[in-house]
Computed example of a mutant assay.
Amino acid sequence: MNETHRDRDPEGRARNARPRDGLGRPLPYGTPGVERQPEGVVRTPEETVREAQRLLDAGMPFHAHEVFEDAWKSGPEPERDLWRGLAQLAVGLTHSARGNTEGGARLLRRGAVAISGYRDADPYGIGVGSLITWAEELAGRVEASPQPVDAAGEAPRLRH
Rank of each mutant, 00 (worst) to 15 (best):
residue 55 L to D: 04
residue 42 V to G: 00
residue 123 P to C: 02
residue 146 P to G: 14
residue 28 P to Q: 12
residue 45 P to R: 03
residue 23 L to F: 12
residue 27 L to N: 04
residue 32 P to Q: 10
residue 34 V to Q: 12
residue 21 D to H: 00
residue 108 L to H: 00
residue 66 E to H: 13
residue 124 Y to K: 12
residue 30 G to M: 09
residue 90 A to Y: 04
residue 22 G to M: 15
residue 100 N to D: 08
residue 36 R to F: 03
residue 93 L to E: 09
residue 3 E to C: 08
residue 128 V to N: 11
residue 79 E to H: 14
residue 147 Q to D: 15
residue 47 E to Y: 08
residue 58 A to D: 15
residue 117 G to Q: 11
residue 64 A to L: 00
residue 77 E to Q: 13
residue 90 A to P: 08
residue 49 V to F: 10
residue 158 L to P: 04
residue 55 L to Q: 15
residue 13 R to A: 09
residue 111 G to Y: 01
residue 36 R to A: 10
residue 38 P to G: 08
residue 8 R to Q: 14
residue 57 D to K: 12
residue 107 L to W: 07
residue 98 R to M: 11
residue 135 A to T: 08
residue 63 H to A: 12
residue 132 I to Q: 01
residue 136 E to W: 04
residue 45 P to V: 06
residue 15 R to A: 00
residue 10 P to W: 09
residue 110 R to T: 13
residue 111 G to E: 03
residue 1 M to E: 15
residue 160 H to T: 14
residue 114 A to K: 03
residue 85 G to T: 00
residue 122 D to F: 04
residue 71 A to Q: 02
residue 70 D to P: 03
residue 65 H to M: 11
residue 119 R to H: 05
residue 158 L to F: 09
residue 74 S to Q: 14
residue 91 V to K: 09
residue 147 Q to G: 07
residue 30 G to C: 09
residue 14 A to Y: 07
residue 8 R to E: 12
residue 102 E to C: 08
residue 141 R to M: 06
residue 131 L to E: 06
residue 33 G to Q: 00
residue 99 G to T: 03
residue 50 R to T: 12
residue 159 R to E: 05
residue 123 P to R: 01
residue 133 T to G: 08
residue 73 K to R: 12
residue 69 E to Q: 13
residue 53 Q to P: 05
residue 83 W to A: 13
residue 2 N to L: 06
residue 38 P to F: 09
residue 37 Q to P: 01
residue 11 E to A: 02
residue 4 T to M: 10
residue 151 A to W: 02
residue 150 D to T: 02
residue 129 G to K: 03
residue 95 H to Y: 15
residue 68 F to G: 08
residue 59 G to H: 05
residue 102 E to Q: 14
residue 130 S to H: 14
residue 160 H to S: 11
residue 99 G to M: 13
residue 6 R to S: 13
residue 126 I to H: 12
residue 139 A to E: 09
residue 74 S to F: 15
residue 42 V to T: 14
residue 148 P to S: 09
residue 4 T to Y: 14
residue 46 E to R: 01
residue 36 R to C: 01
residue 64 A to N: 05
residue 1 M to P: 04
residue 122 D to W: 11
residue 73 K to M: 04
residue 111 G to N: 03
residue 116 S to M: 03
residue 14 A to T: 07
residue 19 P to C: 13
residue 90 A to T: 06
residue 67 V to W: 11
residue 157 R to G: 11
residue 94 T to Q: 05
residue 133 T to E: 14
residue 7 D to P: 00
residue 132 I to V: 15
residue 121 A to G: 08
residue 149 V to G: 01
residue 72 W to G: 05
residue 69 E to H: 10
residue 17 A to P: 02
